[in-house]
């Protein structure tokens, strides 16, 4: 599942030419978003542990930890989404295409990127409309904190926008690079885990 070794992801070197900057921007955004997500997961652990402490030691449970924790979780999931495409970490069945000739592998990867890109654009479009509705209606969650709903909705649009960009960048690079090599994500993770330094 999650790993950093290039599976179906980027190959040897980047495409030359004017696109280079755009492509690097997409990569950079993906990496930055994933880093922010890493900070968030740590923050979630700490605030929830604090909640238990507050309840038992101070007998004063907080009103905000569950809402803030859940919202951060949504942010981190969607922020890290593009990076998981970039690193080839998504779960897929590679049994059939793994051994196919290079042309087929390229076509399969192209199809994947088109579907992901297409769905992401649709998601951004539909969700933006829904977010505007939430915001203008002043929708809030019916919890103790009553957080405005758009706060947990915005990352979904941002995440799919990054993903659409990343899919486009990978699609542009597809013909310029050697055909992608599909190691099943499971195998890749297994190798990654077994080589963990400890």
């Amino acid at each position: 599942m999650a790993h950093d070794t290039p599976g179906s992801g980027p190959g040897a070197q980047d495409a030359p030419g004017p696109w280079l900057r755009v492509l690097r921007l997409a990569d950079g955004l993906s990496i930055l978003a994933a880093r922010i997500a890493a900070v968030m997961i740590t923050v979630i652990a700490v605030i929830l542990a604090y909640e238990v402490l507050a309840r038992y030691v101070f007998r004063a449970p907080t009103r905000w930890t569950s809402d803030v924790g859940t919202t951060l979780m949504i942010w981190l999931t969607f922020l890290a989404m593009a990076q998981s495409l970039r690193s080839g970490g998504m779960i897929r069945i590679t049994a059939l295409i793994g051994n196919a000739p290079p042309g087929v592998r390229r076509a399969a990867q192209g199809f994947t990127l088109l579907v992901i890109g297409g769905f992401s654009v649709l998601a951004v479009w539909l969700c933006t409309g829904a977010l505007i509705e939430s915001y203008s209606m002043g929708r809030r969650q019916p919890t103790m904190l009553q957080m405005p709903e758009w706060i947990a909705e915005a990352p979904i649009i941002l995440g799919y926008a990054c993903l659409a960009l990343q899919a486009l960048a990978d699609l542009i690079r597809l013909p310029l690079r050697p055909a992608p090599i599909f190691v099943s994500s499971e195998e890749a993770e297994a190798r990654h885990l077994s080589k963990e330094p400890r």
Binding site: A38, L76, A80, I91
Partner: peptide, 25 residues
């Protein structure tokens, strides 16, 4: 003293990626 800074970052990064992969499904 069995977890250094690099290992911690690695653990965090892996957790984020696995979470994302599971939640996207």
């Amino acid at each position: 003293r069995s977890l250094g800074w690099t290992q911690f970052l690695g653990a965090v990064k892996d957790s984020v990626q696995t979470t994302t992969v599971i939640f996207l499904i």
